[in-house]
Design a protein around this nucleic acid. Structure first.
Lengths: 261, 261
DNA sequence: CCCTTCTCCGTACGTCGTACGGCACGAGTG
DNA sequence: CACTCGTGCCGTACGACGTACGGAGAAGGG
């Protein structure tokens, strides 16, 4: 297996691909290209959305766009770069509403929800982003710029605004990855909860021993009964977002009322 | 590639492995086993720590413990289960200091730091945990129980304590994954920053266009100059942990002073 | 016109996880 | 004691994967 890195070999052909290489005139020598990088990326995105990240193989992608497997390498240096292009394309397509005069809390909520919506629409993103940080494409830059703008007027200096954004996005990513995993676990277990419980009863009795793990057993049961499943995405989202914003409020309000310094 | 799931096929042989199947008397028929599951897990952990998660292959593991590749499957149903065992073994080995009369903030800081230390010592954990939630092994239960105990006396009810712990651990995981990625990016770039900058200058000029992305360029530069690298793990940790605890404080203090309800 | 250069692709290599079936061991049974 | 048969071990092989390599053919430049 190859490294999942960006821009190995020649100095970052990925960057040229991301920014649409300005030095590339349409005059080429050989036969015309039968597809385009955009088609490739679009098809790869469709594959990932429909059948998951594992379905995005060079052969499957090639077949989908109607070329041979090796022809894909004429457009893209490798799979890592393809994934980079896919991520940046999604970032570029995100909505970027004007923040206008909304409160900072409302703006940050908007940032969080936009990212959550993206990760829910493309759950495989949580797997890609775990493997390589996104590259400096136009999508990332536009996203970064727009999200930083949400911190205008909070009184945070540049370093803190960046750290706060990272903090906020980290929560969203963390939450969505957990939600995705939970959804997968219930989906492809192919066994009802009761069945699973009965089949493993002897071992589970040791796992859920109230004497060995009093809090874990009690709280696990409470959390399980409180919502339908053993893990409720909705509650975790509300809770985590409120905590995240409260945490930032402690900093932002201190900036706004500097007499406390 | 196969699915990275736990306990497919027979009803969760993983659970029996994790809890050390009590129904398995030492009386077996054939020849004695040449190694043990514990040795397998230990060797797999050593492989991962020394050469990264990608080096943990069934063949490499088999060679390390001195058996044939296929013999590993006599001990463990598959690679997914092996990874589960590795994770749970690490959880089980984590320190669990008594919380005594420490303040809740000090206790939660302890929880966060213990998890950060674990993830720093075994960076590949951030990659595994991204692929499958840990199974219900003794390590996870002990970890969960101990970390829940850190919330004793905070006044949080069961559901909130669970959500708060998830929130805290999510931050740690998120932070360590970012730190790990940043470290890898600077390690295996094999190119100095200046070199990279010069080689991609024409494209980077478009990326860092102060007119198109005023905040991003300014803040990216500020964050880069403020610390040595473009991303400082230390500052992000301090910042994120303070925000996380402040966010929880808003909830915990409200519970402690219920007149505000 | 030829020649260069580019696209496309068939084949193949090395890696992975793991299914399958044979072999050899040794405890239980007669 | 001999037999049996459940069991651990392993050699081989299959079907994926990413991708290196080299050849065939198309189009623009001299």
């Amino acid at each position: 297996m190859t490294e999942r890195e960006t821009g190995r070999g020649e100095p970052s052909r990925t960057l040229a691909l991301l920014w649409g290489d300005p030095s590339a005139g349409p005059r080429r020598k050989g036969p015309g290209r039968s597809v385009s990088v955009e088609q490739l990326v679009t098809s790869a995105l469709a594959l990932a959305d429909e059948q998951g990240l594992a379905a995005v193989t060079m052969r499957a992608l090639a077949e989908r766009v109607g070329v041979s497997a090796m022809s894909v390498y004429t457009y893209v240096p490798g799979k890592a770069e393809l994934l980079d292009l896919m991520v940046d394309a999604l970032y570029l397509a995100m909505p970027r509403p004007a923040w206008r005069s909304r409160s900072w809390r409302s703006r940050l909520t908007g940032v969080a929800e936009a990212n959550r919506d993206l990760l829910l629409a493309h759950p495989w993103l949580t797997e890609v982003a775990a493997l390589s940080r996104p590259p400096l494409g136009p999508g990332l830059m536009a996203k970064y710029e727009h999200e930083l703008a949400a911190f205008d007027g909070t009184g945070l200096d540049d370093v803190d605004a960046d750290a706060a954004l990272t903090f906020l996005l980290g929560f969203v990513q963390s939450h969505c990855r957990a939600a995705h995993d939970a959804a997968r676990a219930t989906t492809d277990s192919a066994m009802s909860d009761a069945e699973w419980w009965a089949a493993n009863q002897p071992v589970l009795e040791r796992a859920f021993d109230p004497e060995a793990y009093p809090r874990a057993v009690r709280i696990g049961a409470a959390a399980g009964e409180a919502q339908g499943a053993a893990w409720s995405a909705g509650h975790a989202w509300e809770f985590g977002l409120a905590r995240t914003l409260d945490g930032l409020a402690a900093l932002i309000d201190a900036q706004a009322a500097p007499e406390s310094r």
